[in-house]
Design a protein around this nucleic acid. Structure first.
Length: 590
RNA sequence: GCGGUUGUAGUCUAGCUCGGUAGGACUCCAGCUUCCCAAGCUGGCUACCCGGGUUCAAAUCCCGGCAACCGCACCA
């Protein structure tokens, strides 16, 4: 590539520009650089980790605080059994074949696709199917024409051993959700055995991707926010649904997609529920909150959409899934969150595998009284006849519907079950009343799941602007990593000490501040714009005499003049979005 | 993992064909200057992706790694 083509490409590609800026200013960079690096791992620097915290705080505001979700934090490594039970050991893998001659490995489904087998079909195949298809199409190694060995599957989970015994297999979690399901009984007890409730875990997850690229979009270790919301499937109503009923969601329907179209249908939450496009109110609620979250990170609605997943695209645990996508410059529509209706899949799996009861008891408002015909074996009569076999005979009778027993006894005076002849006097058939006060069931789960690194990237890209040949990161004020920069007009005549005083004042008020006295004031503004510093406060000669400062807005470059004494009160209002920039003081004409 | 392209300071890059002191610009740091949007002057720090080989001598040639970018694939 010529250097000309390279530079023009970089000039127009936001991904490159954002990554370069991120590295230079310390938002994030690829880890382990001094040892040559390793793909798929990233380090967040000072500005980045702060931005990430702010983004996660927004997520907590919208998804956690408003609904009273429990937060929890558990371990990244888990014993093998957890992911065997959850289905990940079976599903988190891709078919692979190795050439027996040159030992190069290939994606089996990819090879099959070249023979005209769709990825859709290849995905569903068992290893036996894969092997059979490879033989049928006489597929050989594309490199050396060697024959392939047995197909295997590449496990996308990181595997390790727990402790010194290699038999104790452990996996790095590929999602944070399983920790929550595994702890369900304790969480449920803590919720004082009431549904619905939700639990969220924001933490690292590991996926040993074959080839992670795309910067923050695809990592081997990343931050995931999994929220599992448990509810009674018979009481699926969301109590906050009215708060979001009119929120419009752009959804690309499965139907639309099957016609090879991508046009989103604009539906209010209410419409989507009425038309049964979203089957669960809670899911719709979280989707609406997810849309609001992205709005608050600076992504306008027209650059957001939800994709209804087609049946074969869904994860193994999901009955209905939507992906939330955001338009990004380089990669097009990119998934930032997934919204899955997991039903009782996970709790059922863990119940079965662990043998621990995870059902929930629900008392009926009114006890249900039923009367049914029962056939009760009379053991005092059966005993003398069948001796040691009596219990078996009784059990055999219990299996037969009472009505059948009654009819047989009425007709013949006895009934023969599993070789036992049971006479009229050995069994009592009668109507029995029972009162059912409630029942046990497995809660259902809807799961919104966010890729925090993707949210981060999206926020950064959407903040990225060029103004007068200068880069400005126009973060929404709620996530700006540095809220206020404080600058002496010049680092002399006492302006520097005054500026440090002001910075100290604001820092003690709880603001994220920065102090900079190096270079001309213009240069410092430019530096601050590039770091996304929301406001700049400049101490000049007038400050020294009348105690006022200028406040500069990063996005408009407007300035207002305000007394230092008013700063804390005004700035708190500003950052709580209860005041505009022009409310901060008297506007200075430029 | 495959195919293509590419690795020179914090960033962008010259040098590589034809082996011989690695140069510039911006950034950054220090000083001077400067009354509000990357001004100026002086000085300074910082680089040949790693490992082998060929050679008197390797950024340059050869081999092997590693990494990045683009496409395939997977996915939050």
């Amino acid at each position: 590539m010529s250097s000309e083509a390279k530079s023009s490409k970089q000039a127009c590609d936001k991904f490159v520009a954002v990554n370069e800026l991120a590295k230079r200013r310390g938002f994030f960079w690829s880890s382990f650089e001094i040892y040559g690096g390793s793909g798929g791992f990233v380090t967040y620097g000072p500005l980045g980790s702060r931005l990430k915290q702010n983004i996660e705080a927004r997520l907590r505001d919208l998804m956690v605080k408003k609904v009273g979700i429990y937060e929890m934090e558990s371990s990244v490594i888990a014993p093998g059994k957890i992911f065997e039970a959850s289905g990940h050991v079976d599903h988190f893998k891709e078919p692979m074949v190795e050439c027996q001659k040159c030992h190069i490995r290939f994606r089996a489904d990819h090879l099959l696709e070249e023979k005209g087998i769709s990825s859709k079909d290849a995905e569903k195949m068992t290893l036996e199917d894969v092997k059979a298809e490879i033989q049928r199409h006489e597929i050989v190694c594309p490199d050396c024409k060697g024959a392939f060995g047995e197909p295997t599957r590449y496990l996308t989970m990181f595997q390790t051993t727990i402790g010194p015994y290699s038999g104790a297999v452990g996996y790095g979690r590929p999602e944070a959700a399983q920790n929550i399901f595994v702890e369900f009984n304790r969480l449920f007890a803590i919720s004082r055995e009431r549904l619905p409730f939700g639990a969220i875990q924001i933490g690292h997850a590991l996926r040993n991707e074959i080839s992670p690229r795309q910067g923050l979009i695809r990592l081997r270790e990343f931050t995931i926010a999994d929220l599992e919301f448990f509810f009674d499937p018979e009481e699926p109503n969301c109590e906050y649904i009215s708060e979001v009923a009119d929120e419009v969601l752009p959804i690309v329907l499965a139907e639309t997609r099957q016609n090879d179209q991508e046009t989103p249908t604009l539906l209010s939450v209410r419409e989507a529920l009425d038309k049964k496009i979203i089957r669960c109110e809670w899911q719709a609620f979280f989707m609406a909150q997810a849309k609001r979250l992205l709005l608050s990170l600076g992504v306008p609605m027209e650059n957001q959409r939800f994709i209804e997943k087609l049946p074969w695209e869904k994860a193994h645990y999901s009955s209905q899934s939507f992906d939330q996508e955001v338009l990004v410059d380089r990669w097009g529509w990119t998934e930032v969150s997934g919204h899955a209706y997991r039903t009782d899949f996970d709790l059922s799996c863990h119940m079965k595998a662990s043998g621990i009861d995870m059902t929930v008891y629900k008392e009926y408002p009114n006890p249900v009284e039923t009367e049914e015909l029962v056939a009760k074996p009379i053991l005092s009569k059966l005993g003398p006849v069948y001796k040691g076999e009596a219990a078996k005979a009784a059990a055999a009778i219990a299996k037969v519907p009472a009505k059948e027993v009654q009819d047989a006894l009425a007709k013949d005076g006895y009934i023969t079950v599993e070789g036992y002849k049971v006479t009229k006097d050995q069994v009592e058939v009668c109507m029995q009343k029972t009162t059912i006060r409630g029942k046990r069931y497995i809660p259902h789960v809807v799961e919104p799941s966010f890729g925090c690194d993707r949210l981060f990237y999206v926020a950064l890209e959407y903040a990225y602007r060029q103004k007068d040949d200068r880069v400005v990161l126009s973060f929404p004020r709620s996530i700006a990593p540095i809220q206020i920069g404080v600058y002496p007009l010049m680092g002399k005549d006492g302006m520097d000490t005054k500026a440090k005083e002001v910075q100290r004042l604001l820092a003690c008020e709880g603001f994220m501040t920065d102090y900079d006295e190096a270079g001309s004031i213009g240069r410092r503004y430019a530096r601050a714009d590039e770091a996304g510093v929301q406001l700049g406060i400049t101490i000049d000669y007038d400050t020294l005499t009348d105690g006022t400062v200028t406040i500069r807005d990063r996005d408009s470059w407007q300035q207002v003049r305000t007394p230092i004494n008013d700063l804390p009160k005004l700035l708190h209002k500003y950052f709580e979005c209860k005041a505009n920039f022009t409310d901060l003081g008297s506007l200075i004409k430029s």
